[in-house]
Design a protein around this nucleic acid. Structure first.
Lengths: 200, 200
DNA sequence: GACTTTATATACCGTTCGGTATAGAGTTAA
DNA sequence: TTAACTCTATACCGAACGGTATATAAAGTC
């Protein structure tokens, strides 16, 4: 037969939609195969388990996201204008997150839902490594900045979490239709708030 | 018999611990009753369903949290010192969150896990009203501030989400043992960052 | 002591869970 | 023509799910 790629991809897409709307545990394999209009053995032919489907989803999308962030998170100090060299890189990183979230809203809902999952949950086990990569990229970025901007030194971890927290807050608002736009202007607003506080 | 309060409370405590560690969907009624060393009919005698147990948990703890925040979120403008009157109230609110999270770490893990739950998930339905109350209290606080501090005006919603996002980021770090303290100093640090950015 | 209420367990309900043994249909290659 | 391989469905597995009918034991009430 030749529906291989059709079904294989379709299973992933249907699973993505369901996991995004209800969460990993709340979705049954039966729901996925119903949604994909196939039967269970077909799903198990392509993926070895429910967890396998979820895992494949995470690999597929996190790979994109992480490589996107990797590209824009390298910090090159500009000694003549300290202030001006942190600002644009943070805007770039933020914009990358925004763009990715807008293009993959179903997946990013999963990212958000999993953000504060307890470490003892099964979902945490599956996603921790991708989450770690992302976190590590930002951490390295802030470490580079800390070497130049000594007032940031020793706060790198805190800054990483805060920054990611604010970015995800903005994205969550967008995905919940609480705010309608998530463009470059919004990214600049976010970074400005992050750097200079609410009196921005 | 007389074990009423014993068992009734014990069920809640065991459920709290399990829900906190694994998430609502991943916990079965059987697990709860095993943990509480009772049988299923006993649980169903006190609570009408699994959802009923969860709901009761949320009521119990959210009532405490919300009344705590209610007490400290009233803004009284101090026209002689605009700057000094926003700072202390935000510190108080933050400290209240910190105190509550430290005293009820198992419950606050649930709050965090549910923070970005999709609206179509069953858990969201159960908790949305309590979450809303909390959100509304902060929103009103920022509206009061916006009336005096015109540079905050029309950003109240954004500020509410950002502030809560940062507070929860700090608490999440603490509950994941990434930072060891969550005291008044930390609250001041948070508020300072919120108001003046990362160059604090 | 008889009756009611409260609180608990045994044993079970139908349904759904994640997962699979098996067979057959369509395609490819000899 | 046949053999092998790829893909999908029927039909099923044992286990666990959320939930309950029923019995009963203890305690309070008359």
């Amino acid at each position: 037969m030749n529906n291989l790629t059709d079904n294989k991809e379709n299973i992933l897409n249907c699973a993505l939609s369901l996991f995004s709307k209800k969460g990993y545990e709340a979705v049954s394999v039966q729901e996925i195969v119903n949604s994909a209009k196939i039967t269970k053995p077909t799903l198990y032919y392509y993926y070895k388990s429910k967890e396998g489907v979820y895992s494949k989803l995470l690999i597929k999308y996190y790979t994109q996201l992480n490589s996107l962030i990797e590209k824009v998170s390298h910090y090159n100090a500009n000694p003549d204008s300290y202030f001006e060299d942190i600002y644009p890189i943070l805007v770039n990183v933020t914009t990358s997150y925004f763009t990715f979230a807008k293009e993959n809203p179903l997946f990013y809902r999963i990212v958000l839902s999993n953000q504060y999952m307890p470490k003892s949950s099964s979902v945490y086990e599956i996603m921790k490594k991708y989450h770690y990569i992302q976190h590590d990229l930002l951490l390295k970025m802030f470490y580079s900045m800390g070497e130049i901007h000594t007032n940031l030194k020793n706060k790198e971890k805190q800054l990483t979490f805060s920054f990611l927290g604010i970015v995800n807050t903005y994205i969550a608002l967008f995905l919940s239709d609480e705010v309608s736009t998530l463009n470059c202007e919004k990214a600049k607003e976010l970074v400005h708030q992050f750097m200079h506080g609410i009196y921005a």
